[in-house]
Design a protein around this nucleic acid. Sequence first.
DNA 1: CCGGTGCATGTTCAG
DNA 2: TGAACATGCACCGGT
Length: 774
Amino acid sequence: MCMNASCGSTSTVEWKKGWPLRSGALADLCFRCGSAYETSLFCETFHLDQSGWRECYLCNKRLHCGCIASKLVVEFMDFGGVGCTTCTNCHQPNLNNRGENPGLFSRLPMNRQHTNGESGMNVGKADLFSQPLVQGDDKREEFMPHRGFSNLMKPDNATTTGYRHDANGTHESSPTPSQPPSLNMPMAALPYSLNFATATKKLMDAASQSHTVQSSASGILQTPSKSVPGTPSGPGTSKSAQARIGRPPNEGRGRSHLLPRYWPKYTDKELQQISGNLNLNIVPLFEKTLSASDAGRIGRLVLPKACAEAYFPPISQSEGIPLKIQDVRGKEWTFQFRFWPNNNSRMYVLEGVTPCIQSMMLQAGDTVTFSRVDPGGKLIMGFRKAAHTGVIQGCGLTNGTSNEDTSSSGVTETPTSVNASSCPAQTPEELKGLPEHLNSNHGGSSLKKSEVNGVKDKKRTRTVGAKHKRMLWRSEEAMEVRITWEETQELIRPSPSEKPTVVVIEEHEFEEFNEPPVFGKRTIVTSRPSGEQERWGSCDDCSKWRRLPVDALLPAKWTCSDNVWDESRCSCSAPEESLKELENVLRMSKEYKKRRSGVSQTVRTEEELTGLDALASAAALGDTLGEEEEPATTTRHPRHRVGCSCIVCIQPPSGKGRHNSSCLCTVCSTVKRRFKTLMMRRKKKQLEREEIEAAVAAAADQENKEDGKTGRIDLNSDPCNRGDVEAVGVEEKDESEKGEAGGCLGVAQADDVVGVTELEGEGEKIGEESKGSS
DNA sequence: CCGGTGCATGTTCAG
DNA sequence: TGAACATGCACCGGT
C-alpha cells in the first residue's frame, strides 16, 4: 500500500522501480501518486544497495541490513524497523543485519525511537512516507532529504496527503485525494506544513499503535526536555535550569547530523514553560547566530545547508519559493527561500529578512531560532539577543495562537523587555549587556565562544582589523562601548511624566517604563585639596556652575532654581563660585579631544598618557587656557599646583620610575586600597542616584538646553567630545582595572567628566596621604 | 548613480 | 581535504 494516504494504492503494479539512487539501486515509486519509497526513507539515510547493503548517504558508510528482502514499502513500514541500530559513524538509524522474522517486530516508527536511546531523535520522519521524488536540475536533488515537501509545495497538488485532525488531536486518513482535509487551511499559507503535520501525526499514530516506548506522541513534540532524556551532552548540557542546553532537534532528516551550533538551545526552565504553558506543540528546529551579513541591509539570511534541507521545503530551482514564517509577535513574514549554486553545492538563503530582523532589533551576534508548531507545521521565527545576561529576547507572547516562541520561546517576558535598549527601567546589568551582544557572547551558554558567535575570535579580529566593514567588533572595542554604556547610565533618567511599574522577576524588582528615557544633565566631579569631592553642574539658564553634592543627579533641564542643595545659589542672580579647578578639568578634556583625533587605535593609550603628561605640565606651570598653546611635558597632574608633591606629581616624566604592577610600597598599596573603596563607593552612589532620579524626574521634561551661552567650555553640547572623554575614561578605567597594573599610579591622571574624576580625586588624596606618610 | 542580484572567493571547520 | 559559510564584488536594471 502506498503510504501516501491520499493515494492509498495497494497495487504492486503501480509501483515501479526506477528511481536511481546514488548507489545504483532503484527506489520504489508509486505510479499513481509519484511517491517514492526507498529504504533510505525508513532507515533515514541508508540507500538500498542491490547486494543488501545500505549506504548512508551522509557518511557513506555501508552497513548491511537484514531487512532488505522486501521491495515493497509496506514491508519496510511494518517490519523494516527490525531492531534498528544506529550507524556507528553518523548515528543515523540503521536496520540491523539480522534477517529476523519481521512479523515479530513492531512498526518502524517505534523502533526508530529507540534506535539510539533518544526517543525524540527519531520522531517526525513520517513526512518521509509521502514523498514523491522531485527531479530537479541539481543532481543532488534526488538525494535531497527534504524532498518530501515537494508534493505539498503545490497547494493544488493531488498528492497532498489528507489527514484530518479531530479535537483530540487524533487523525484519520482522508480516503480520497479529492477530499480536502481540514489541514489544508494552514497549508494555504504554508503549503509544506501539512507534510510535517501529517508526518507527525502518522508517527503519532504509529506510536500509539505500537504502545511502546512513547506513551504520548504529543510528549514527543511538546517537551523536548522530557522526551529527550538521553540527549547526548551537547554543548551546554547541564542540569541547571539556567543552563542553555543545545539539543538536537527532534525531526528532520539528518537532523542529528546537524552541527551542535545549530541545535536549538534553551534552558530547562524555558522548556518547562514551553511544555507547561502552551497548548500547541513547539518543535524547536534549529537556530543560527546572525552574522554581519545576515543582519546587514542586504537582507539575506544564510541558512545552514543541513538545516535548510532538513526543515524547509525542498526547492529545485535557484529562485526558490516564498516561505511564510511567523515571528514571535504573531506577525507573519514572507521570505524568499532560495539557494545559490556554490561549489557544486548550494547555499541556502532567506531573502527579504531585513524588516523582520529590524523589527526584532537584531544585530550580528544575536540568534534567530526556527521552530515549528504542531499541528499545522507553521514555522516560527524567534530570536535571542546575545546579551551576556542570557536574557531571551523577543519571547513576548502576543496572541493566543502564537504564543509560542522558538526554542527559546515560552519564557515569560514582558514586552517592554524586548525594547531593552530603550527601556530606562532596565537594570544596569541589563543595559550593560546590550552593547555586549555586539561582542556576541551568549551568557548562560556553555558553548565555546566561537560557536556562540558563529565567528571565531581570531577571524573576528582579523576581519575587523583589516576590513572595517565587518560589524563584529574586537573585544577591546566592544569593551570600550560597554563601559561607555555603563557610564551612559549615569545620564539616563526616566521620562519625567513616567511613573514606573515595578515588576518582580525572580525576586528582583524591575521598574518598567513605557516612555523612553531622557538624558540627564552632565556634571563634573572635582576634588578639593582636602580630598573632599564635589560635583558641579551648569545652570541651563545662566550657565553658571553650581557646586552640588557629589552624589547629585541632575535632570536634563536644570537651573539654579533647582539647586536645592545650596540656598544661597538657588537663583541665577547669585554669583558663581570659583571655577579654577573646574577649568583645569575642562581644559584637560579639551586637550584629550585634540590629541585623540586621528590617533590610531593601537597607539592611543600611549599617546593619551603623553597627553596627560603634557596637560599635567601645563597645569603645574600654571599656564593659561589658551587652546593652541602647547604645554610642556611632565607627568604632573593637571589639577595640581606648582610644587605639588602628591603621588601623581612626583612621578618622573615619560613613565620613568613608575611603580610596576607588583609594587607593594605604601603608595601603591594605598592606591589599590583606595581603588577598591572607590569602586564600592561608586556602587553605593549608583543606588543613591536611582533614588534621586525619581525625585528629579518631574523636572526633567524640558530639553537640555545647549550650553555655551557664555562661551564657557561646554561639557554638554558636543557628543563627539563627550565620546572622546568617555573613551579616555574608559581606557583609564580599564587600565586601572587591570590591576594594579601599571599602574596604580596612572589611574589618577584622567577621568571622565562624569564621575570618573573621582579617581582623580583619589589620586590627589592618595598623593596627600603618601606625602604625609613619607 | 544607486541598489539589488547572483556568483565568486576566502576562511573556517569537521571528518 | 572538502564542505559549509561569510562576505566581497561585478553586473545589471531602475531612477
